[in-house]
Nucleic acid binder design. Structure first.
Lengths: 256, 256
DNA sequence: AAGTGGTCTAGACCACCTA
DNA sequence: AGGTGGTCTAGACCACTTG
């Protein structure tokens, strides 16, 4: 521990800014397991004194590690090495619900509802769902947890005609749809990455700015009608999406 | 412009930290197009004076916007609203090379080589490629650009036996493999999100900490042998991966 | 040469948690 | 009550870009 915060070796010419040098020291200590998940770091003021740097500079080094999810800070308590989250791998070619997917691997699933209700649709929702004039939209917004760890924020939108009582949805949305004979059989997803804003980061229990996977999904009924439009944010460090690619024969198109 | 940086309205009770209030003001100005891509913001010292805040606090607000890719800063020059990047959509079910993919949409492609050579393999590479004892690994590391904009960092690894002269690869790796009769027909990809480190961010021309899509791909020959192991980092704001999902009939498995 | 962002400091007060 | 992280300040110097 002393070695990490020793005042020696700083300011070697060409080593770059002091906060980056300290950042590197701590990151290497974590990578080499000299700092293990759950370990606490000295208080910022102590790190400053030990290294001979100002607290502001120490904070800048620490903040970068917090922002990339390697450290967590708790006000009034201290700074800790982030617990290692086990990565979940999910096959991307199967249209399954979160609930079913987790059940298949024997994980518990909890949903924490943020909002459930009927609203006036946003233009984007009118487009995606093909809503008629005056039709309302049912919005289901929840945090998905598995074994107590928040994994994703899911914001689903459906036609208010299809789901007139969104507040009665409890567990799996797909199960509810199935009971109505409206289970989707096909979906198109778009995947990108984005930094989590303060609100979303808070819901997922990570620091603002941490990378998240943003997934937009439009689901279709056998008739080709759109049934669901869902925007999800997954913790980037907790999820792996797996997909298999095949060589397309000349001229063939797979994505419609 | 004056409205954004007016000293009025700060410190309203319950509005949160000053740097977040300023962050919100600027973000809203960008979202509402009152600040358009390419527009310059006042110098930090001026923003500080205009708002009545210290430069450090102004910097903290600005830094957060830089870290999420909404602003760019150029030392000696100024602070600007980030140019809007056009999102590229790529189908995830097709095994195509970057070069071919871009050619299909009439985009130019440039590769900037970072490294090309034979090395002693890392354990991870031995595993993924099934390397024999003493076998070397060919590494190809390059930045992929389209129309001058860096889009991705691609780090490919192949058996040194398959590709004994990696320094002779110029354009499409898949083309080279095809000429050897070694074109992959199947691949498994794993997708997650991660904050870009200083080095990778620099290569992609974005600020450190910006969210990137991390893709690991293992490609197979018709014989089932692994031919290629590639780790790529895509700019999260410049790429959409599109994938189609289908409902799997009972008992069927799609991913092998 | 002047102006810009990049780094760094010492010190202060606040809000929260733990004891 | 004491310690922790969270915020904020004024001022300084450096490295780089621009006119």
């Amino acid at each position: 521990m002393e070695a990490i915060f020793s005042p020696d070796g700083f300011d070697g010419a060409g080593a770059g800014p002091l906060y980056l040098q300290l950042h590197r020291r701590i990151a290497e200590a974590i990578a080499s397991s000299r700092l293990a998940p759950g370990d606490s770091l000295p208080p910022e003021r102590d790190m400053a004194q030990m290294t001979g740097l100002s607290r502001v500079t120490v904070r800048k080094a620490v903040q970068a590690l917090v922002a990339s999810g390697q450290l967590v800070q708790r006000r009034g308590s201290g700074t800790y090495v982030a617990p290692k989250v086990e990565r979940l791998e999910q096959a991307l070619s199967l249209l399954t619900s979160f609930t079913e997917d987790m059940a298949r691997r024997g994980k518990s699933v909890e949903s924490v509802w943020i909002a459930r209700g009927l609203h006036a649709p946003a233009p984007e929702e009118v487009m995606a769902l093909g809503l008629g004039a005056g039709e309302r939209v049912a919005r289901l917004e929840r945090v998905r947890r598995s074994d107590g760890v928040p994994l994703a924020i899911e914001r689903a939108a459906l036609s208010g005609t299809v789901l007139p009582h969104p507040d009665q949805v409890e567990g799996s949305l797909y199960k509810v749809l199935e009971e109505k004979g409206l289970r989707p059989v096909r979906a198109v997803q778009r995947i990108s990455a984005a930094n989590l804003g303060p609100r979303d980061a808070g819901l997922l229990g990570v620091a603002p700015g941490v990378a998240g996977l943003k997934i937009e999904r439009v689901s279709y009924l056998p008739s080709g009608r759109v049934i669901e439009f869902t925007r999800s944010l997954y913790r980037g460090d907790a999820y792996d999406f797996a997909v298999e690619l095949t060589l397309a024969p000349e001229g063939e198109r797979i994505l419609r």
